[in-house]
């Protein structure tokens, strides 16, 4: 009896080892504790009651499954995001191509407006060019004829006087 009283006192003072506390608890739970120390029984009864509380097994199963499958959900989210990126990149490429094609055709139309092609047949174009050059050549010949009669200096003096008269 003295022994259990001593152990109990050391228990309250946190001087007991784990094994002593286990033995003490067992004595109180078995009803083997003497009357003198019976008032301490509630302390060990409560410890025993608290130690028997359990988590809901259904909840535990669900929680473990949720933890293990959490990675799969993460992977699924990652995959769908990368798929979105791929689709977005494809759309961007298509848009760029469209803009490029549109720009090319607009440029072509612009050039067409600036330099319209009036001849479809190259032979016709050559013939017309020869006629135009002949006209230019005959014009040069008439000028040369005039220069044979009047010297270039005289032409220049006449032009100079005309300009001076005009400016007055």
């Amino acid at each position: 009896m003295k022994q259990i009283k001593d152990i109990l006192e050391r228990y309250w003072n946190c001087e007991t080892a784990l094994e002593e506390e286990k033995a003490l608890r067992a004595q109180f739970l078995n009803g083997a504790a003497p009357e003198e120390v019976k008032n301490a029984q509630a302390a060990f009864l409560l410890q025993d009651r608290l130690a028997k509380e359990k988590a809901d097994p259904t909840f535990i199963r669900k929680a473990m499954k949720a933890a293990i499958t959490s990675d799969e959900q993460k992977q699924r989210n990652k995959i769908s995001f990368s798929q979105i990126l791929k689709v977005a990149a494809s759309v961007l490429i298509l848009i760029s191509l469209g803009i490029g094609i549109q720009t090319y055709y607009r440029q072509a139309q612009f050039m067409e407006a600036l330099f319209p092609e009036t001849f479809t047949d190259p032979e016709d174009a050559l013939q017309q060019t020869r006629i135009a050059l002949d006209k230019v050549s005959s014009s040069f010949s008439r000028v040369q004829g005039i220069l044979d009669i009047i010297s270039p200096e005289q032409v220049a003096d006449t032009l100079h006087s005309a300009i001076q008269d005009h400016s007055k």
Binding site: E53, A55, A66, A67, S70
Partner: peptide, 26 residues
């Protein structure tokens, strides 16, 4: 679960804590 319950003071919070712990450990 028992440790979580002793700290949080209620069963629902204790379960949340246990679930979060399992996820973290995994």
């Amino acid at each position: 679960f028992r440790l979580a319950a002793s700290i949080t003071g209620n069963k629902q919070d204790a379960e949340d804590v246990v679930q979060d712990t399992m996820l973290k450990v995994w």
